[in-house]
Amino acid sequence: MIETLLILFAPLIGGLMYGFERKLRARMQSRQGPPLLQPFYDMWKLIDKQAFIVNPYHTILGVMHFITIWIVVAFIILGQNLLYVIFLHLLSTIFIILAGFSVKSIYSHIGSNRELQAMIAYEPILIMVAVGFFMMNGSFAISTIRENDTSLASLFLLFLAFLMVIQIKLKKSPFDATEAHQEIVGGVEVEFSGVFFEFIYMAKWLEYVFVYLLLMLFAGNNIFLGIGLFFGVFLLVNLVDNATARIKMKHLLRIVLVIGLILGMWNLIGLSYV
């Protein structure tokens, strides 16, 4: 019962998280920041605007992106197979990339190009995290991982590699070249308008929920450690965002792949010898 409620209200929880993060980021830059419910005020405004449909494939792919990522969050809450969840998430990213390529706008194409390159950088690390959980817990099922003890100490190097993936998924500096709004005016999102942009916006909130739920898996059945990890990483991600500039795509690929693969391989090889 409580799981059904959580699944139904997942976008709203994501919206509150997003609104709180904007306020936190503004306070770090010594500004006042928008009100806490700003994402919902934006939602009301967007529904009133006129929606341009460029071509039907573009709009359908955008809506499918939103629905797929909601299903991903639902599967994590219900405790399904972790590897299946990661591949379903890959499918939702492929939907938005195809939507970016299906229009003639040059900014959309460059944004999709960059999303594809970023995906090459972080997918291996996510799969290695899943393999690490399998080696510690004996199964890929999320419900089993949540009932066992915490594996943070033995998967520590994979945890560090996962922190880099969080920066890419949440589109924060230094790794936010996929949505570089000063250069390519938003990338893939630039051709959506009206209520269809609202779907992409809500998909962004659900990304937050997805990433932080995966993070709390590292805590196992220790609820206090889970909440502590959540708040600690939330603060750390925003502090790094306010202390670095945005680096170019080729540097992103080199840094994330090299460091992520080395850390991941060390951890997995170390686990198989213990």
């Binding site: 503004a26 770090m28 830059q29 010594s30 006042q32 502090l239 306010n242 202390a243 670095t244």
Partner: peptide, 21 residues
């Protein structure tokens, strides 16, 4: 980079510079 880091952290505890005009 660490000066920006600590400055962003200490700004959380000071009042913002914005005037509510």
């Amino acid at each position: 980079m660490f000066t920006s880091f600590t400055k962003a952290f200490t700004n959380l505890f000071k009042t913002p510079q914005t005037i509510d005009y």
